[in-house]
Simulated scan of single mutants.
Amino acid sequence: MKFLDEHAVRRLLQMDALIPAMEDALRALSSGGAVQPLRNVLSVPGQGGFFFTMPASVSGQLGAKLVTFYPDNKGVHTHHALILLFRQETGEPMAVMDGRLITEMRTAAVSAVATRLLARKDARSLAILGAGVQAKSHLEALRLIRPFEEVSVWSPNHGEAFAREHGVRAASSAEDAVLGADVIVVATTSRTPVLKGRWLKPGVHINTVGAPRPDWRELDDEALGRCRLYVEAREAASRESGDVIAAGHIFAELGEVIEGSRPGRQHPDDITLFKSVGVAVEDIASAGLVYRALMNAAQPQ
């Protein structure tokens, strides 16, 4: 059985390969080619943290992610995880690998899939609300999908430092960041709305990956009312996302758009919203990609 720490995962996992792997996993999820139950959630007594168990079988890969989410962590990541892979034919354990980086990268890769499917082809400006690991990972992934000429970032604490590090514009406010943007990423730790509907221009596409609890929100009611809503999995999003619960409807799963059973963008002025809650098939497909890269690297040249 192999054990891979975060350094090993980082060496083996590449964003340009991860994006099509996430597309395949989402197609399988919506077409019946994958099996995953709703994640089980344990509230950690007295700590304000959460412990999730996320098993899945997808494309011949079997495994589970064990992940903690401590939203109030300071100076240490809010998410930590392990992913376990098993041989589907026999149930034998094959690998245990660090899942923190996989969670970070697959979230952005799925947003990249959504952006390819839903954003206007002529999208050239990107706004990011948040300046943590998801902001960095989304900047990398979305630049592989659209040739952004302008990138703005806003965060109440670290926006200017992020902008200096990545050579983008530091916005003075969330409104300043998103006004006129073609694509918006909302990746915050906020439990109340940070994106207002009155700021959105016709034709914008939004990826939102924060607010992972039923009573948390990243978008206000006006924003939700103006958007056509896409998710990874209807049941998971309807139970876990405060934004989806408030919206009251889901237009389609991304996998349905990939397989062609539901439409993506239908008009240049459509406002499209992809709300990600993160699902187990993404983690297991990502871990399978890492494992195959490890085995290929071990083959004699």
Rank of each mutant, 00 (worst) to 15 (best):
V290S: 05
A8W: 00
A252V: 02
G46Q: 02
L29H: 03
L4R: 05
V231L: 00
I102S: 07
C227L: 08
M22N: 07
H7A: 15
K196H: 09
R217H: 09
L219N: 00
R120V: 03
M295N: 13
A131I: 06
D270V: 02
G248Q: 10
Q266R: 14
D243Y: 01
R124D: 11
G63L: 08
V186H: 08
N207Y: 01
I258D: 02
A187H: 07
K74R: 14
G225P: 13
G48M: 15
A246W: 00
V110F: 03
D270S: 04
V151M: 02
V185T: 14
G255Q: 11
V178T: 13
P214M: 11
I250L: 09
H166S: 04
A247E: 03
G255W: 06
E256Y: 02
F148L: 14
P202R: 14
A285C: 14
A56C: 05
A237F: 04
L12Y: 06
L12C: 15
V153P: 03
N207H: 01
G264H: 03
E240R: 11
I128G: 08
S137Q: 15
A285D: 04
D269P: 09
V290P: 02
G197Y: 14
L139S: 03
V186G: 12
Q47A: 11
D16T: 14
P263N: 10
